[in-house]
Design a protein around this nucleic acid. Structure first.
Lengths: 177, 177
DNA sequence: AATTTATGTCAACATAGCTGACATATTCGA
DNA sequence: TCGAATATGTCAGCTATGTTGACATAAATT
């Protein structure tokens, strides 16, 4: 091992003061979000390890179960990934019998995605520990506290995405089903 | 293209009902967390694309700036990744002059990590848009609402991690610096 | 002096994203 | 009706970031 560079501590303008609440930046909540999400994701990850699937599969199974019959295009839009990226995990989920494709009733080019019973079970199994973790974290909060949390999370989301759930009903821009 | 399987819609027990609030699971907040974090991360991602760095670099720069002088072991513990994984990005950050290593004053085996001015600037630049997004999402909330949000996020974190920040001061278990 | 610890490094591998190019089936518009 | 646009699939290759296993070195500890 060479260890080059470890010899001269006083070159190169080293800073030894912690990056605190300078510039009015709240680093604490930035870190809270990082750790919270990391642990939030770790629950389903543990289950997925057993099944041989990954996070990518989790997301697909989740949204297909939340909105059965959604098109591939709509799913791509929700996940914000490329179709090549989706193709890999989707194929595995279909081949394993978690998701089924059906040609669109109006537009037969579409492949509408539906969960099988097996897929539904998986989605529920993955959501359950996350729901528990959330319920646990909500425990101390009152009704208004919970409302605040939801409002906060909602406010963190880009406007374009924020209305996505509504697009399932009425479709104004793009991707009409 | 073969399109096998798209032909028979009625086989395989397809479910067409959305996975709603069955089992008392709050899917809405699960999705809020997913979208919130995705967009929260997208801000620094855009900046990093310019610098040729990725999310992994972001995390390292962040925590080194938050706690200058932390050891490699402590950083590994925070990030929960392997040293081989860290080595790649850390080397790049050191070679590019964002982070400097200094041999530990007491234990000279340690390589304590410090930000350079350049590293500090990067960390701040990455934190700024995230802070803005948070401030924006907090806007409507009162003081108690903000407290609720922090309590919620804190409650989402695994106990082991939750006290990590305190370990910086007094060190009880493992990794004493 | 022997062992443990903190760190670095090499090699190989997996997952999950990306781009670019091209194929096929279907729908739509002139 | 024909050509263009659309929805989807697929091949090939690349990148980023994680993993495991094995081994090296310097310093501390016993």
């Amino acid at each position: 091992m060479s260890r080059a560079g470890a010899i001269k501590p006083e070159s190169d303008h080293i800073l030894d003061r912690p990056m605190g609440d300078t510039d009015g930046i709240d680093f604490e909540i930035i870190e809270l979000l990082f750790f919270a999400y990391r642990d939030f994701i770790s629950d389903p990850d543990a289950i997925l390890d057993t099944s041989g699937f990954g996070r990518a599969h989790h997301r697909v199974v989740h949204f297909v179960n939340r909105e059965p019959g959604l098109t591939v295009a709509a799913l791509l839009d929700t996940l914000k990934i490329t179709k090549q990226s989706l193709a890999r995990v989707l194929k595995q989920l279909i081949d394993s019998g978690y998701i089924a494709q059906v040609a669109g009733p109006e537009d037969r080019r579409q492949r509408r995605l539906f969960p099988t019973e097996r897929g539904r079970e998986l989605a529920l199994a993955l959501a359950r520990p996350q729901s528990c973790r959330i319920a646990n974290a909500m425990e101390g909060l009152g009704e208004d506290g919970r409302t605040a949390v939801k409002a906060f999370l909602s406010g963190m989301i880009n406007p374009a995405t924020r209305g996505a759930a509504d697009d399932r009903e009425d479709t104004i821009e793009g991707h009409k089903q």
